[in-house]
Simulated scan of single mutants.
Amino acid sequence: MTIKKIITWRGSLVAAALALLCSAFLVLPASAEAFDDCPAGQLCLYSASGGAGTKRTFDPQDDGQRYDASWDDTTLSAKNNTAYWACVYVDTEFGGLLQTVRPGNSDEYGSDPRFAATISSHKLVPSRAHCFTGYERCPDNRVCTFTEPAGRGAMTVHIPSTDPSTKNYGNAYGAGTAPASVWNRTRRHVCFYPAETFTGTWTDPAAPAGKYGAYVVLRGDSTTVPPPFAKTFRSHELVNGTSECQ
C-alpha cells in the first residue's frame, strides 16, 4: 500500500468518525425536548421559557380560577398534555386577555409583554369556544352576575330571598361588582334597576321608547349586558311575570 493510499484510507476513517460523532450530537437534543417532564393528562405551567424553571401541574378537575401568591403572575411557558383545550388568562377568574393551547401543544409567553409574567388563572375545556365564556360556574337556581362580558371575570352568586315583600336578590352592587353579563338560572324572571331602591330609569336616545325602567333577564337566559345598561345595575328582584318589574 502506498503512502498516498494510507493517507486516503486514514482520512476516510477520520471523516467517517467525525460524521458519526456529529450525527450523535445532532440527535441528542431531539430526544431531550423541552416540556418532556410534563406528565400525561396534566397542564404544566413553567416559570421560565421552554419548559424550564419551576413547574406547576394541574389536572382537568383542578379549579384554576386563581393562584396563590407564590405562583400568580409567574408563568412564562406552558405545556398542555391533556385531551382538553387549555385557556390561560391574565386576570383571576377567567378575566382579561386570554390565550388558548391546543391539546398536546406547548405555548410561550415571555416575548409578549401582555402575557409575560401576567397569567393569573386557567381552565381546561372540551373546545376552544369554551375559553371565551365563564357562565358554566353559575350554580343551579341562582342569579349569577359577572364583571366581564360572556360570564368572565369575578362572579357574584345571588341566593334567592324569601322576603315576600321585596322578592329581591340583592341591592348591594358596587362599582367594582356591577355586572357586564348575567345568567339567570332560576325559575323566575329577574329585573335589574339602576338604583339600590329597586327603582330608576335608563335613557337611551337611540331607542323609540327613550327610557327604560328595568332591564329584564328571562328565566334560564344568559346574556352580555349592552349599553346603556352595562355596569350600571345596583339592585334586582325576581318576578313571575315581566309586568311585575317596578
Rank of each mutant, 00 (worst) to 15 (best):
A117W: 12
A24F: 06
F198E: 14
T223Y: 15
A206P: 13
Y193C: 04
F35L: 10
V90C: 01
T57Q: 13
C87E: 03
H130I: 15
S70C: 06
A17P: 01
T177V: 06
R102I: 02
Y89H: 01
A207M: 08
A195H: 11
K55V: 13
A178P: 02
L76E: 14
S106A: 14
T2D: 02
L26P: 09
C22P: 08
N80L: 00
A69C: 11
R102L: 03
S12C: 03
Q42S: 09
S235Y: 04
P226I: 01
L26F: 14
C245Q: 11
C131F: 00
V125C: 00
Y67C: 09
S120T: 05
A116T: 15
N141L: 07
Y212P: 15
K123G: 00
A195Y: 11
A83Q: 06
D140M: 05
K79Y: 12
Y193W: 07
A116G: 12
G151V: 00
G210F: 02
L18H: 04
W9R: 08
N141V: 15
R188N: 08
G53A: 05
F25Y: 09
V90F: 04
Y84V: 11
E244S: 15
T162Q: 07
C87P: 00
G153Q: 11
S235H: 07
A30P: 01
E33P: 13
S77E: 06
E108K: 04
F146Y: 14
N171W: 10
Y89R: 01
P113E: 01
P103M: 05
T156V: 09
D221T: 03
V101L: 07
I159S: 13
S70E: 10
N80Q: 01
S47A: 12
A40V: 07
F229H: 07
K167G: 15
Y169T: 15
R137L: 08
S12W: 02
S222C: 07
P208A: 01
G210A: 06
L13C: 10
T75Q: 09
G110C: 05
D37Q: 12
S165N: 13
T2F: 09
R219I: 11
R219S: 14
N105P: 08
C22W: 06
A24R: 11
Y212R: 08
G95I: 05
E33D: 14
A214K: 00
G53W: 02
A24I: 14
D221F: 04
A83Y: 03
S120I: 04
T201N: 08
L238H: 14
D73M: 10
S111C: 09
S77G: 04
D163T: 03
P60F: 09
K123C: 05
F58N: 02
D63S: 14
L20G: 05
T199F: 05
F146T: 11
R188E: 06
R234M: 02
T203F: 08
K5R: 08
S106H: 12
F198W: 10
G41R: 00
Q61C: 05
